[in-house]
Amino acid sequence: MPETRSTAYDSKIEGNVILTRFDAALNWVRKNSLWPMPMGLACCAIELMATAASRFDIARFGAEVMRFSPRQCDVMIVAGTVTYKMALAVKRIYEQMPEPKWVIAMGACASTGGMYRSYATLQGIDQLIPVDVYISGCPPRPEALLAGLIKLQEKISTERSLRDQKPKLTEKLDDALA
């Protein structure tokens, strides 16, 4: 009977293995590949386009793939004035996005209705859909949008997906590894 058993990993490979929480790995994956759904409604959309272009390059942060199909997106960037006429369409697109999804309200109009305190403008998209990050500005500079995206990434890194959704399994794993 051999005294030792060879393991599956050898020392050359062991150096490339990271042990971490499942949540941390999941959050790292999600936050670094946030595919935006550009809900570009007005002038903020121009700044969104500028952020996606080469000088400010939102692709550095993983948000390169601006898919205009909500089924393939993670984060909806509401960029521009939301009129009452458009409001329910934005809500419908939000409902078509698969979980997990986040919302960035870019600019004053999407956050609070902006300068348009009138009969035709929805006073903030958060009256209809839950917003994670608000970016102020009229329009916000591309750097501000990138800062908002980074803030959303920080928010995602604090999420507890496995621990919240599978509490009993988490408990069992904690007990087994303790």
Binding site: Y84, A87, L88, G113, S118, Y119, A120, T121, Q127
Partner: peptide, 18 residues
Amino acid sequence: LEGLPSEMPDVAFTKVTP
């Protein structure tokens, strides 16, 4: 200026602006 409330389900709605 602040509008009047109206409701058309599935089409649009309006609220009074604060």
